[in-house]
């Protein structure tokens, strides 16, 4: 009975995974297809990968995507961490409405955030003489990234033992030194988590970039969107396959390391138990 239930659970999981991975499988397979067709298989080739390396426009959009993601995640991580500490130190009465505003970009539909920023940048631009471009794109990404960092750092601050900070202060630390030596190490997992979420959100964003980057700068998503109007080149399939494999490898390495660490810890606990005996 239990076996049967387990089996049906497994089957269901596999079906959902099939649904999630079918298009990815199609994309990867057709990056090796020798013609441009995206439904008929006509033989194996690595041509698209070769052509990808010579396509300046695609590489340029990849560079823009990586640049805006790295920069915005970095800025958002620093600003978000400082802000989280600031929010944490406030009275609840003041903090609550600020957190509410902080949540607006998360709750609002992307298109509303994008359209609003587009209006803002266009009206500011006519005053201050600037045009939509990499700068406005970066500001938009920083703006939607900071809330993620704050929301992943704040819970760590609530877990923090405030006595540690007081102890550091009593031992002669300035408030900034206490911040750097006591608070930061304690909340580091939250900071790293926030940075990862911010980076992922930036890489994956299309809608907000589309409304804030103007016509001169293109991210990879924008490049792909402009291609879908006609036909997406298999070169893009090739690029996505490479990115996908890179992420997969990274995740496997990180997880293997964690599993190894787990096993090590377990062994140590075992040893200690034996010693105690």
């Amino acid at each position: 009975m239990i076996g049967k239930r387990k089996l049906s659970h497994r089957l269901y999981t596999y079906l959902i995974l099939l649904f999630l991975y079918a298009p990815i499988f199609v994309l990867i397979v057709f990056s090796f297809n020798s013609t441009k067709s995206r439904t008929v298989w006509s033989g194996f080739t690595l041509d698209w990968y070769r052509q990808l390396l010579q396509d300046k426009e695609i590489l340029r959009s990849l560079y823009n995507t990586l640049a805006v993601s790295f920069l915005s995640a970095a800025v958002a991580t620093v600003v978000g961490t400082f802000t989280a500490v600031g929010f944490f130190s406030m009275k609840k009465r003041i903090r609550a409405p600020l957190l509410y505003v902080n949540n607006i970009p998360l709750i609002n539909a992307d298109i509303i955030t994008g359209v609003g920023m587009c209006l803002l940048f266009v009206s500011l631009g006519s005053f201050l003489k600037f045009k939509l471009g990499f700068g406005t794109l970066l500001i938009a990404h920083i703006t939607f990234n900071i809330p993620y960092v704050i929301l992943s750092v704040l819970p760590k601050l609530y877990q923090l033992d405030e006595n540690l900070v007081d102890a550091a202060k009593d031992l002669g630390c300035t408030w900034f030194r206490a911040f750097r030596k006591v608070i930061i190490p304690e909340i580091l997992p939250g900071i790293i988590n926030g940075a990862m979420i911010a980076f992922t959100m930036s890489i994956d964003d299309f809608v907000i970039s589309y409304f804030t980057a103007g016509s001169r700068v293109m991210t990879l998503s924008m490049k792909i969107f402009s291609m879908t109007r006609k036909r997406v080149s298999p070169k893009i399939n090739a690029l996505s396959t490479l990115l996908f494999v890179a992420v997969l490898l990274m995740l496997i390495i990180v997880n293997l390391r964690e599993i190894k660490q787990d096993d090590k810890n377990k062994k140590q606990i075992k040893k200690m138990k034996e010693i105690i005996k």
Partner: peptide
């Protein structure tokens, strides 16, 4: 993991 593949491209697929 699928979220790491561009969503436009996955939809296109």
């Amino acid at each position: 993991l699928p979220m790491w593949m561009n969503f436009l491209l996955r939809t296109y697929a």
